[in-house]
Nucleic acid binder design. Structure first.
Length: 267
DNA sequence: ATGACGGATCTAATCCGA
């Protein structure tokens, strides 16, 4: 069976429900994981997505900040959230599905941005980010013997070609060695495969985020790959394609992140 | 070195993002 999953940091789902509808209609992913919905559960535009066939939804929101959601055309067996670093933030939600007759777990993350200065003493937000990454190291791609897919805004661009200038970004939060090494350690310890880099050569520049603070994001093209799709090996072997929907950055009133879609042929 | 933009909030000025 064909199966597809998308991830998108929407930067306010109420403001951009229309863009989400356009995206779902055009690309038809089976599952969409959203981050930074910036609303409470009862404010989530559930009906807008249900009418397009995304009847199964798991929402973990809070007022004004953060918030994650999973919307799906396929039945959701169960869902749970984990409060990483015990801050009470809504930065994770997981849901279980049956795909091609097998149980499959989806994790949706919104990792803290980490503030401006990469110094855990001067900047508590950076300390929070590193602790969050540390706690992710116990999450495995085959926990409970269920193969998993992990997606989301991880707010770290791990490789040299994941940023517009490796040299100029080494001291910028999202590409400092302590972060990139930490994220690669999460991947290694959990036996996760980076599906975007499995599909797109490591030498190729690859971005999913461009700052709002640029007059012409496409001309300057100072992007970063902050959004990720990982999976257990047995799912990685069945990956067909990765699509980065770059044109979404040019839509009217866009998010600063663009959607990423992974398409599989599951047996 | 700074600021550029954009969103949410006790709708005005402040915090936050990365």
């Amino acid at each position: 069976m064909s199966f597809s999953i998308a991830t998108w940091n929407i930067n306010s789902v109420r403001l951009r429900a229309g863009l989400v509808e356009d995206f779902l209609t055009a690309h038809q992913p089976d599952i969409l994981c959203l981050q930074e919905i910036k609303c409470m559960n009862d404010q989530f535009p559930a009906k807008n997505f249900k009418k397009l066939g995304y009847e199964h939804q798991a929402v973990h929101g809070q007022k004004g900040y953060h918030g994650v959601a999973i919307i799906s055309k396929r039945p959701l067996i169960g869902n749970f959230s984990t409060d990483y670093v015990s801050m009470g933030d809504t930065r994770h939600i997981a849901a279980d599905f049956e795909l091609a007759g097998k149980p499959t777990r989806i994790h949706n993350f919104y990792v803290p941005a980490g503030g401006d200065e990469p110094d855990i003493i001067k900047n508590p937000k950076f300390d929070h980010k590193l602790k969050f990454i540390d706690e992710m190291k116990v999450l495995g791609a085959m926990d409970d013997d269920v193969p998993a897919i992990l997606v989301g805004d991880l707010n770290i661009a791990p490789y040299e070609q994941d940023v517009w200038s490796h040299k100029q970004m080494l001291k910028v939060v999202s590409h400092t060695p302590v972060e990139t090494e930490g994220l690669l350690d999460v991947m290694k310890k959990g036996a996760w495969t980076d599906l975007m880099r499995q599909h797109i050569p490591m030498e190729e520049k690859l971005y999913t985020w461009w700052s709002y603070r640029s007059k012409d994001w496409a001309a300057s093209n100072r992007g970063r790959r902050l959004d990720h799709v990982w999976s257990a090996d047995e799912l990685a072997k069945q990956l067909n394609a990765i699509e980065v929907v770059t044109e979404a950055r040019s839509w009217e009133k866009p998010s600063d992140h663009v959607p990423v879609i992974a398409r599989f042929d599951l047996v």
